[in-house]
Amino acid sequence: MNASSALLAFASLALAGSVAVRAEVFQPLPAPASVSDSAVTQGMPRLLSDFGFFEDPSAQLPTAGVSPYRLNTPLYSDGAEKLRFVYVPGGQKVGASGEGLLEFPVGSALIKTFAFEENGKRRLVETRVLLHRADGWLALPYLWNEEQTEATLAVAGARVQATTPAGEMISYRVPNKNQCKECHGLDGDVVPIGPKARNLSADWLEATLGQVPDGADTLPVWENRASASVDEAARAYLDVNCAHCHRPGATASNSGLDLRWEQDDPHAIGIMKRPVAAGRGAGKHLYDIVPGKPDESILLHRMLSDDPGVAMPELGKSTVDDEGTEIVREWIKGMAP
């Protein structure tokens, strides 16, 4: 809503023909007025502005054709504010089959900006883009400058000092290009993770797809999880935070642990399952999940750790998620032994 009214204001300025006025009032815009389809489909653009995803990059005001969206249950990223956008080239349609991942046409892009608050102001840290090319998806990380005017390709990633909303000072890890694939890899390809129909609102799907697929909008909205069952909230959290690796064909497939929402084999989701290659990550515990005993469950033990080599997820966070661990604790506690 904010975005569209700002866009309107911008458009009326342009209509008034006050180009000179605009030049005085606004800084020259680094971005082109529309998305560059060639940047999305080829090469490794050095600057985020080369894509033209944003009318006003520092305000994260998207270009026409780039739509914001949110996920019902999001991935925990040290409490970073995350601004998500999707771009689909003109005239193309997004497909869907059931509750799973939406089918974006070649030329589409998913854009996610990570921000922390600093001195009462939003500070953009990085923007990750997933580009759907003819030969598959490409993941690239862009690191924002101090001035907050531009983000530059950082294939090797970076570390940035940040303060989480909980007040913790952290060394925030901007992932490198390969680390993008550690989470986004499935059967050797890079794929999106977030935009699954089951984790998107029916309203947004209706507006974007013109339809609401079966099984859509079933994961609880995280901040309203109190009105969902503990089982649903915990399974949604594990699906979103863990299952991109802990599933067949992905980075942690060799663990045999499968935390996808749709997995209903108790052993596969960790109940009385022994670890395989957990190493010291297992702590003193014997099973991934011991029903009724969260404090004897490796799954929760690793979520509660901030020690690299023990902590789960391995990438994308460096602090413990109090809300997520609380719901998983409740879930394990409520299981009948």
Partner: peptide
């Protein structure tokens, strides 16, 4: 002084 990731070197 490693701060992140589950291994020193990952080859895929």
């Amino acid at each position: 002084s490693q701060q992140g990731a589950g291994e020193g070197l990952l080859v895929t």
